[in-house]
Design a protein around this nucleic acid. Structure first.
Length: 271
DNA sequence: GTAGGATGCTAAC
DNA sequence: TTAGCCTCCTACG
């Protein structure tokens, strides 16, 4: 379930289980073996997330750069660690915990300089501290773009960490038609979208899932039977194609946009 | 058992 | 715009 909230949560969880003491580092699958050998028994000193990129800092200036892509998964457990399966790219283990990484797009040992280059090509992240997060740099790109707001929200150079679920949901929450051009988004709309993402994604980190339905629209509040959305959180439109909108009852629509599934309510979200 | 899809991204055309 | 990468789960026979 890798949108930005997942990665920030992983940064916290890796730190709480492994930081401050040496860990056994291994790559049972083999693809990261050489680097794992260099890091074995090194101390995890810090962890960091920017958008969907996770950085595990060892010693002074060694970093493991992890990107989960679409299928990557991380699984934490208590010691003793069971024998790893042959898909485990990276395992960290100490006296109390282990953690397995499977199927990442990226798992690489990088330097400080390489890490900085990754930050440089990412836009501001609603989950990073306000000190190094400036939503106006994102708006500058949005405001001069003819690209749809739906595509811009998924562009990690514009804003880092938003994925297909948050994209669909935040546009619904603000009544914005996904096909509107970036340059037709007002500063006030962008500020509201950004502030909303900060709140939603922080809650996502806390709960380790995406919930976007306002209290007044929950099934209980609306006098409807309880529901569970496919992906585990409560949402308005994501993966709800052809189902009735929770608010107006219109059929939720879906379409392909840049090879991803887009979902929206044609009635609640107007140009 | 098998096919297909998924909360992502990049390189190549 | 498309193929390709990596894994797991569901739906369908």
């Amino acid at each position: 379930m890798p949108e930005g909230h997942t990665i920030h949560r992983l940064a916290l969880d890796y730190a709480s289980r492994f930081s401050g003491r040496p860990a056994q580092v291994a790559s049972p699958q083999g693809k990261f073996s050489d680097s794992a050998a260099l890091l074995d028994r090194a101390e995890l000193t810090r962890t960091e997330a920017h958008g969907k990129h996770l950085f595990l800092g060892f010693r002074d200036a060694d970093w493991i750069h992890i990107h989960l892509g679409l299928f990557g998964k991380v699984n934490f457990g208590d010691a003793p660690a069971p024998p790893p399966t042959d898909t485990v790219r990276l395992r960290l283990a100490n006296d109390t915990s282990y953690v397995d990484l499977r199927g990442p797009t990226t798992c690489a040992l990088i330097t400080d300089t390489e890490k900085r280059a990754i930050h440089d090509r990412l836009g501001p992240d609603p989950l990073r501290p306000p000190a190094d997060t400036d939503p106006s740099t994102a708006y500058r790109r949005v405001a001069r773009s003819r690209t749809t707001i739906a595509a811009l929200l998924m562009d990690q150079k514009v804003i880092a960490g938003v994925g297909n679920v948050y994209r669909a949901e935040v546009l619904f929450r603000h009544g914005i038609d996904p096909y509107r051009a970036g340059r037709d988004i007002t500063p006030a709309e962008w500020d509201a979208v950004w502030a909303d993402l900060v709140g939603l994604m922080r809650e996502g980190v806390r709960n380790n899932r995406i919930d976007t339905v306002r209290p007044e629209h929950t099934p209980e509040a609306m006098g409807r039977p309880p529901r569970v959305d496919d992906h585990g959180g409560e949402v308005y439109v994501y993966r709800r194609a052809n189902l009735p909108c929770h608010i107006c009852g219109s059929e939720i629509r879906t379409a392909d946009l840049a090879a991803r599934n887009l979902f929206w309510c044609p009635n609640c979200q107007r140009a």
